[in-house]
Amino acid sequence: MKADYDTLLKEFTPEQVEKLKEIIERYKGKPGGLIPVLEEAQVSLEYLPVPVQKVIAAELNLPLSRVYGVVTFYSFFTMTPRGRHTVRVCLGTACYVRGGKAIAETIEKLYDVKEGETTADRRFTYETVRCLGACGLGPVVVIDDEVHGRMKPAKVKEVLNQYE
C-alpha cells in the first residue's frame, strides 16, 4: 500500500508531516516499531486521526486494523485533537460531596463540552477524574499541572481565564 501523506496536509502543517516522515523512517522495518512511532507521532501531531494511522500502517507494512487496535487500546493515544490546556475536575468522594459535580456542570455549560471532549477553539480539553489525593482542598480542579482548590461554580470562569 502506498502511504498518502498529501491528505495529512489538510489537518497538519508541512513541518509536522515532515516530522512524521522522519519518525517513521527511524523505525521502519524494525520489529516492535509501532508503539514508539505512535508515541512520537502523537507528541508531534498532538493526535492520531485515521489518515495518520493509514500512513503509519502503510509505511510499517501493518494492517490498518492492527494500528487502530493499538491506538484505541491505550488511553495515552487520542484520535481527536487535544486542547492547549487540560482541565481535570475531581469527582472523587470528598470533592463530590463538597460540590464537585456543580463545578463539572458549570464547565460543561460555559464551554459547551462533555467529558473527554475538547472545546471548539482547542483551548481546553475537559476530563473528570476520581481523586487526586488533595481531598483537603476539595473540590479540586487541576489545569495542566496547577491545582486549584476550594473551587466554587462562580469562580470557574475567573480561574479558567488565566489560561489562554
Binding site: 485515521v50 494511522q53 493509514k54 494492517p63 490498518l64 486494523s65 492492527r66 494500528v67 487502530y68 487496535g69 484505541t72 487500546f73
Partner: peptide, 20 residues
C-alpha cells in the same frame, strides 16, 4: 485480508473493520 481487528478495550471492546 486483515480487515477485522479489535477496537477499544475492556468491556467496550468491539470487533472493528479497518479503523472503525
Amino acid at each position: 485480508n486483515h480487515t477485522l481487528g479489535l477496537g477499544n478495550r475492556g468491556a467496550a471492546t468491539l470487533i472493528s473493520c479497518d479503523a472503525d
